[in-house]
């Protein structure tokens, strides 16, 4: 459920810059968060994602820019730090901090825990929870307070893949709420595609791309963003560079491109090949056993994104 594009943002940042010591870690960020919309912030380590969230939450003072929030804002940090009491008491404590009357706390706490699949944990000691369970309770605290803006900083960090995907499904169902704007910092692109209506790619403290996930993935605005989004192959041509994801490259004896296998790495799906061509390098996945290093192969490339030689943006 995405917000209509003309909906009034509940949180608006303009020209936001944040310094940590003498280093400017966030520069000139514009961002609108609208009710009913989930915005994912993506970027490599050190790009300024958590700093952006801390600044939006008011935990870090901006060095420049404007920040306007029309409502109450709640954030969940990366660490699922819980008090040494029961799970239910932890959520009720969050509601007390938020100013919810005592009589309403129990019901809201249990509803939030149930929504995140943690209803059965209500009576357990928080210190006896597994990492995934603690993360559910951590998110339930923020969900229970029913904020106008919800900020989540890498809610799946540090979890093993099976717990991660379970929690992802649980969160995907509850994140979209027409009453609430959500901004979620993620490290994994696939999670962003699953959860978000909009993505914002941060590179080196600046907004490098923003838009609906499919649009940003199909038409990354620069080579840097394309590389970050998994366009690992680069073929140079007279009119620019073609960048391709591994899924867009396939071994094909009748393919138009000649290549040599430079490296092979066994992966879950088969074998990942790094291919050397006269015009550049490509990566692709192949079924086992796959060609050995040094083997000459033919490949076919489908799709990809083309960047003209004279500028960074792809053609219209």
């Amino acid at each position: 459920m995405s917000a209509p594009p003309d909906a009034e943002p509940v949180l608006r940042a303009r020209g936001l810059s944040v310094r940590r010591g003498r280093t400017e870690v966030l520069r000139d960020v514009d961002l609108d968060l609208r009710r009913g919309e989930v915005t994912a912030v993506l970027g490599p380590n050190g790009a300024g994602k958590s700093t952006l969230l801390a600044a939006l939450a008011g935990l870090l003072a901006p060095a420049a820019g404007e920040l306007e929030c029309r409502g109450r804002l709640a954030s969940a940090g990366q660490a699922a730090a819980l008090a040494r009491r029961s799970v239910r008491a932890n959520v009720e404590l969050a509601l007390a901090w938020w100013g919810v009357p005592r009589a309403a706390r129990r019901g809201r706490a249990e509803r939030a825990l149930t929504a995140l699949g943690a209803g059965s944990l209500a009576g357990r000691r928080a210190t006896a929870l597994s990492g995934g369970e603690a993360r559910r309770v951590h998110l339930a605290r923020v969900l229970a307070v029913e904020p106008d803006v919800m900020l989540l900083d890498e809610p799946f960090a540090g979890l093993d893949p099976s717990v991660r995907s379970e929690l992802l499904y649980a969160v995907a169902d509850v994140l979209r709420d027409p009453r609430r704007a959500t901004c979620i910092v993620l490290h994994d692109r696939a999670e962003a595609w699953a959860l978000a209506d909009r993505v914002l790619v941060l590179l080196d403290g600046r907004v490098a791309a923003t838009g609906p996930p499919a649009e940003v993935l199909e038409r990354p605005p620069s080579r840097e963003v394309a590389r970050f989004l998994g366009f690992e192959g680069e073929l140079a041509g007279p009119d620019g560079t073609l960048m391709l994801r591994p899924g867009q490259v396939a071994l094909d004896p009748a393919g138009p491109l000649a290549a040599r296998v430079g490296r092979r790495i066994l992966v879950e799906e088969g074998v990942r090949l790094e291919l050397e061509l006269d015009a550049g390098t490509l990566a692709c996945l192949a079924a086992l056993p796959g060609p050995e290093v040094g083997t000459a192969v033919r490949v076919r490339a489908t799709g990809g994104v083309h960047f003209p030689a004279h500028r960074g943006a792809p053609p219209e």
Binding site: A57, G77, Q78, W98, R141, V142
Partner: peptide, 12 residues
């Protein structure tokens, strides 16, 4: 753990 206090502040 410091994050517990940070979380409490973040929730008002």
């Amino acid at each position: 753990p410091r994050p517990l206090f940070d979380q409490a502040r973040a929730l008002g």
